[in-house]
Design a protein around this nucleic acid. Structure first.
Lengths: 206, 206, 206, 206
DNA sequence: TATGAATGAGTATTCATTCAT
DNA sequence: GATGAATGAATACTCATTCAT
């Protein structure tokens, strides 16, 4: 059904290239030379270019892989909530922590996201999976009254996008605690129980 | 005390280099070739290297300038509060918005901050001025009961460091609203009035 | 006598490769990648190299095909003259125009001729057919008294070799008119009626 | 008055680069690597690119130099005719021979001309000098009654463009003899003395 | 001190050809 | 015999930095 079955050795090479690209980009950022990636993968430069038309495509593939992992995590969380094994808001908090931790181990995600931010920003079909799963979890937490009702999936991406992934774990935890306060029902104006005195109202964004 | 008295024309050159470096980095990021900076400044490449040992040093100087501007803003805000012309928390909010706006117009700040993040992190003598002024404002807002009592200057730097400076204005505003919720007294556990049930306590960071 | 009987499908592949090589070289010049030729022919790169030892050999084969077409045209012209249906000089002129037009539509001929000009120059067994047919036509035109008597088949190849195939049709026609003046009896010294004063005599070439 | 006086050593390097570019292009065609040119000139790759923005510009400069030489030759010929020391048609023939010889020693001219033929074709300010001088000589020869009256400067360029510069000297001479027949008054229809029977009339080209 | 010319290692990408599957 | 994946040398161009003028 797929375009090509791809020979066993070719598939192995493709995987080695992707793994090493991810590793190197994670450690050194998206500026790593393609030659370095090829060498790390144990293939010649030409082989890398057989599998990916250019460097951008390779980075793109690395990013897509990372995004798909996030989608998987999010779907898993949703499943736990749906089956009654966990509470939506708790899963959301855990997920956020996991996102941040994940991204901080992986400069690839961050670097690629930065470089491709124009293209991806907070939309794109590639994000469909994580977007859908995220919206689902969000709705659950809001139904429980734990999540502030004006929070949208874009807010979640904003959280992910700005996380201090290059900081120490304690700093990342602190940042999350501060940031999540804005997500929690009762902690911010705009909710029924909130006092609107400080002038912050529900956001109007395109 | 200083290394050299520096001749008048040399000083003029140094200033021209710095100004143009700031301008170009602001517009195009830290990747601008040194040659472009030298040319914009109307000097030869060698002259640039006479004033700054290498490109990193030049970017460093540009960053320092930006940081000093922030210090000035912060001191101004403190002065207004001290003189009773303004409320501390309102000034803090305005200051945060001003920084985010400032940095989003000025790729120099952002780019240099990214590149030199290891060196500076949230400390360093270069930050003394903005640090002191910030602590002062913070204390005032906490004394007023408007700022959550566990907030430290490191939290403020964290806010600054992670602001989505490359995003659209509406997105930046939204991010600030979410983030500042965590800074506001009464919006987060750890405060006298807060219920500590969700287990987030005052941070312990090195 | 031939190297191998060659299986039916192998022969088919060889033909497809040649056809597509001709087509692509015609359109894009001899710089087309071998991969592109293989793909166009619907075979893998290795198959191309099974049929032709290297790219030069493939181009060579393409050229040979083109040269054989020219031989065919020339033989046809000769036949028309021999059967009294046409005059030799008129056929010669038409043939020259036809070649120039042909080569200008077909970058294969031109490109291959350029690249292989050292090898072929104006000799070679591969040219036997067109050479013989050309000499025949030439002799007829000279016998008619229309073609200058010192013209040889090498002169004809020289004409072909230097035709401005990349020029606009009007320019090509003009060039032919100028060049053919030198081929026409009575238009140039060396002929019985010519005055030998300007010192140009019949050529002596290796 | 000129853009820059250019330091002595820089000028020396520029000349070495141009000379070696000319030499290498002459011998191997326009495909010579820039690195090879730089090495031959005894400079680093970067130096070549300081003097010429890209490879095309270098080739362009080489061509311009060659064209200027041709312009010089042509003006000299015109001067000899004007001073009565020589006959226009004889100078024209000698010049044509010189052109062809020149170009055959210099694949640079040919290769660059081919590559840049779209841009230059038979016009362009760079050709102004040789064009003007050529027209002058042409007019003289036509006034003398030696040059066919319908010949234009474009015909001359056509001659130059199609000369078999890669052939042996005897072949080039032969080609010239054939081609020049079309330029000579009395050798081709269209002249007062010609019989227009073969239907070739004065050309109409844009 | 200033100039700006020279350096040269570094980067992404292509393509003829080989060879394991 | 066919496939197509892998090779790896080659190429144009950049840019931080040095140093002769």
């Amino acid at each position: 059904m797929q375009d090509k079955p791809l020979r066993a050795d070719a598939l192995r090479n493709r995987r080695k290239i992707l793994e090493n690209a991810r590793d190197l980009i994670t450690r050194f950022g998206a500026d790593v030379p393609t030659d370095a990636i090829a060498e790390a993968a144990g293939v010649a430069a030409g082989t890398l270019y057989r599998h990916f038309p250019d460097k951008a495509a390779l980075i793109d593939a690395v990013l897509q892989g990372a995004v798909e992992e996030l989608g998987q995590f999010t779907e898993d969380a949703g499943a736990r909530v749906e089956s009654g094994r966990a509470q939506a808001m708790a899963e959301f908090r855990a997920l956020a922590a996991r996102y941040v931790e994940h991204a901080s181990r992986d400069r690839a995600v961050r670097a690629a996201a930065d470089r491709l931010s124009e293209e991806y920003r907070f939309t794109g079909d590639r994000l469909r999976r994580v977007t859908d799963a995220g919206r689902n979890l969000l709705a659950r937490a809001q139904a429980d009254g734990d999540m502030h009702p004006d929070i949208t999936i874009e807010d979640v991406f904003l959280l992910v996008h700005t996380a201090p992934t290059d900081a120490a774990p304690a700093v990342r935890d602190r940042w999350l605690a501060l940031m999540l306060a804005g997500f929690t029902a009762g902690n911010r104006p705009g909710h029924a129980a909130d006092t609107p005195e400080d002038g912050i109202s529900a956001p109007r964004r395109p």
